[in-house]
Amino acid sequence: METQICLHGVNKFYGTKQALKDIDLTIPQGMFGLLGRNGAGKTTLMKVMATLLPVNSGEIDICGVPVTNAAKIRRMTGYLPQDFSMYGNMTVYEAMDYLGVLSGLSKQERKERIPKLLERVNLQNNYRTKVKAMSGGMRRRLGIAQAILHDPKVLIVDEPTAGLDPEERVRFRNLLCEMAEERIVILSTHIVGDIEATCENIAIMDYGEILFKGTVMELLALAEGSVYTAEISKMELEQIKQEYLVTGQLVQGSHVTVRFLLREPMQELFDGATPCEVNVEDAYMYLMYRERGDASCF
């Protein structure tokens, strides 16, 4: 059975509002990042792949199974929604056990898998902790454990790091990378750092459309030669902002170190501006400006 997800001409409407516009995408095995600002359509796309929303037109195949075959897709897919939680009065083990039953696991399978998974997500000392007493990070880890409880081929995680502290975020990203070794993991996020640290293949969405699909390297190549840094005086900052797309500024006394993108490929530079290595954030901003012509986010 092929291990990839294919979307072809997918359209989704909420009433008259179009949430997905002609999505064509192929997602291979490994970590796949879906990047875009809030409201870009990432969650809708995730839900459509998870059989939680029907499409208006188009085809989706998950490892060779059409998404219309919901029962089969659910057996081979794990899903961690953005706002995952479980019944507050359940303990961690009870929640896992309950969701395990819903996943069709036998008593023996649950007995074997749950302790292993809880250990894997570092919740081995929290069997009896009530869900309502768990921190956001612990809940997300419980969420990921329940999502892979039935050993799915595909794991869909929606904004898993939103609201987590830096330490917890790093731990969670590493966990997802481990998961991706044996399955397709689709990670949706609006945090560029998550993608940079974990994904090789990505897609960028905006207003329900795919603006970019390819590897991280291909994305970086888009902004190659357009990213510069310079040390300027505070007085010059406003003028630089007018002329270029400033993506970062570090004030040091009366001087500011700015990082900026060229508005046009052949734009004239000022003295002291030096080219620097492109990162995903630069490339993302560059793409958004190029495609949408919108500099309001800078």
Partner: peptide, 22 residues
């Protein structure tokens, strides 16, 4: 209403158990 209040609705909906069994 408990599923929605506990924000467990989507996770449960995604499980393979049939609607009839649930």
């Amino acid at each position: 209403l408990r599923d929605r209040r506990a924000q467990a609705e989507q996770v449960i909906h995604m499980k393979s158990a049939s609607s009839f069994s649930i």
